[in-house]
Simulated assay, not measured.
Amino acid sequence: MDDFMSDFGSYIKKIRESKNLTLNQVALYSEISAAQLSRIENGKRGVPKATTIKKLSEALKEDYESLMRVAGYMADGNNLLKETSPQLTDKDEKDIAKRMEKIKEDLSNDDGYMLMGEPMSEEAKESILDAMEYAIRQATRINKKYIPKKHRDNQE
């Protein structure tokens, strides 16, 4: 398991508990489902998007940049880590958006996916979409590292 995933989740849980807040209270204040928050805290979900971290920072009354650092998005000195890793281009973002729309469409079909023989809840679908988007973004970035430099310019 990725260190950022478990470190970020346990950090959020520690903050929540230190403020004597229940999982449901933070879920309510942040507008994040309790199940999603539980998965974050237990490291069973990838590091959340920046928008989710923003909601958590507001709900927990914690510094957003501190949470972003713990999540691995920022290094000390407020430099975004993504600046040192391959950037996603506008084309990459469009390709990811198209893939996500197709996955969303597949999950929305009446004859769509079942989970252990039961129709999937909206929360389960949301979780799958979050995980898939994270995985696609990571795979795209990782793949860029291994594209020879002479071919990288042609991809932008």
Rank of each mutant, 00 (worst) to 15 (best):
L21T: 00
D106N: 14
E118R: 15
K98I: 10
D2I: 03
P148I: 13
V70H: 04
A50D: 05
Y113W: 12
E101M: 04
D3Q: 03
S18E: 15
E93G: 00
G46K: 10
Y146I: 05
N78P: 00
A27E: 02
K104T: 09
I12W: 01
S108N: 14
M116W: 10
L60R: 07
Y73W: 12
S127P: 01
Y113M: 13
R99I: 10
M120S: 09
N42V: 00
D76Y: 13
L115A: 10
K49E: 11
S85L: 14
Q87F: 07
K54C: 06
L21V: 01
M120G: 08
L107I: 05
A124R: 05
M1R: 07
I53Y: 11
E126A: 14
E118F: 12
I147D: 06
S121L: 08
H151G: 02
L115V: 12
A131P: 00
D153S: 15
I96K: 01
I32C: 02
K19A: 05
L56D: 03
K98S: 12
I147H: 06
S30I: 04
Q36W: 00
N143W: 03
D95F: 01
E65N: 14
L21S: 06
D76H: 07
G9I: 01
A135D: 13
S66K: 15
G77P: 08
Y11R: 12
A34D: 10
E58R: 09
E133K: 14
E123V: 08
L37I: 07
A35R: 13
S38V: 05
S85V: 14
E17H: 13
L88S: 08
I103P: 07
K19S: 09
K98E: 10
R152F: 08
K54E: 00
K44I: 05
N42F: 06
K55G: 04
N109H: 15
P48A: 08
E83L: 15
K91M: 12
S18M: 09
I147W: 09
E123L: 12
S57V: 01
T52C: 06
K125E: 05
G117K: 06
L67D: 02
S6P: 01
K61M: 04
P48C: 04
R152G: 03
F8P: 01
I136H: 02
M132N: 04
A135K: 14
M74K: 09
K19Y: 03
T52M: 07
P148L: 11
N24A: 12
Y64E: 02
G46D: 07
D111N: 14
T89C: 11
M114S: 13
